[in-house]
């Protein structure tokens, strides 16, 4: 005789098996699509990057005990075509512009994000930005950012409808040398007081 639990078990077993096979099929075909579209060597171009340094004293801008902390923003031009990352298993593409650098003594490797974007549709996947502002104020964990060489790169991450998260980077790079600030203490003080008076 068939009991309720037996029926339930059979139905759920079948559902799980079918679900797993379907997921495997979707993951396999979307990988095939990515590879055959050469999605892992997309081109991009990063140019016209200009830094802007601010001095901050808030904890939320990396300042410890109210000590002045250099924050960097950049403006940049960016061209990239990410349409090949969209296939039937792409829920969204998260693309982000990072900078890699080493500290002064070359003992620490750092990577920071200046800008990122969520792209949910293939129609928005062509990036053509001129003089775009970075989203984030960036500071170093211990040192100043000025006087360092930052290597900028555009990365992407596909978040799927089901399956593994896929990561990759585009081939465009840009090396940004942030110049030392001129030793104008007065200027720094001015910007500091302006910072403390403005809410953040």
């Amino acid at each position: 005789m068939f009991s309720l639990s037996q029926r339930f078990q059979t139905v759920s077993n079948t559902a799980v098996t079918v679900g797993l096979f379907l997921a495997a099929f979707i993951i396999g075909t979307s990988w095939f699509q990515l590879v055959s579209n050469h999605a892992f060597d997309l081109s991009s171009s990063i140019s016209n990057v200009t830094p802007k340094i601010n001095v901050r004293t808030s904890r939320y801008y990396g300042s410890v005990n109210g000590k002045a902390k250099e924050n960097a923003k950049v403006s940049f031009d960016l061209e990239a075509d990410l349409t090949k990352l969209f296939n039937w298993n792409t829920k969204q593409v998260f693309t982000y512009l990072t900078a890699e650098y080493e500290n002064v003594k070359h003992t620490r490797q750092n990577e920071v994000t200046f800008w990122d974007k969520i792209i949910t549709s293939k129609d928005d996947a062509v990036l053509n930005l001129t003089d775009a502002q970075s989203k984030y104020h960036v500071w170093d964990v211990q040192e100043k950012l000025t006087g360092k060489d930052l290597k900028l790169k555009l990365h992407w991450n596909i978040q799927p409808w089901v399956g593994p998260l896929v990561y990759g980077e585009t081939d465009g790079t840009f090396t940004l040398s942030i110049p030392e600030r001129e030793k104008t203490e007065k200027k720094a003080k001015e910007s500091e007081s302006a910072e403390s008076s403005s809410p953040n």
């Binding site: 998260f94 982000y96 990072t98 080493e102 070359h106 003992t107 620490r108 490797q109 750092n110 990577e111 920071v112 994000t113 984030y136 960036v138 170093d140 964990v141 990365h155 991450n157 998260l165 990561y167």
Partner: peptide
Amino acid sequence: KVGDVVVYEVAGKNIPIVHRVLREHHSIA
């Protein structure tokens, strides 16, 4: 790596938080 989606727990609270790595700083040695 920057861009990784990680799950972390803040000390004292037992709620796992799923967020993305914005910056990383590591010792080369």
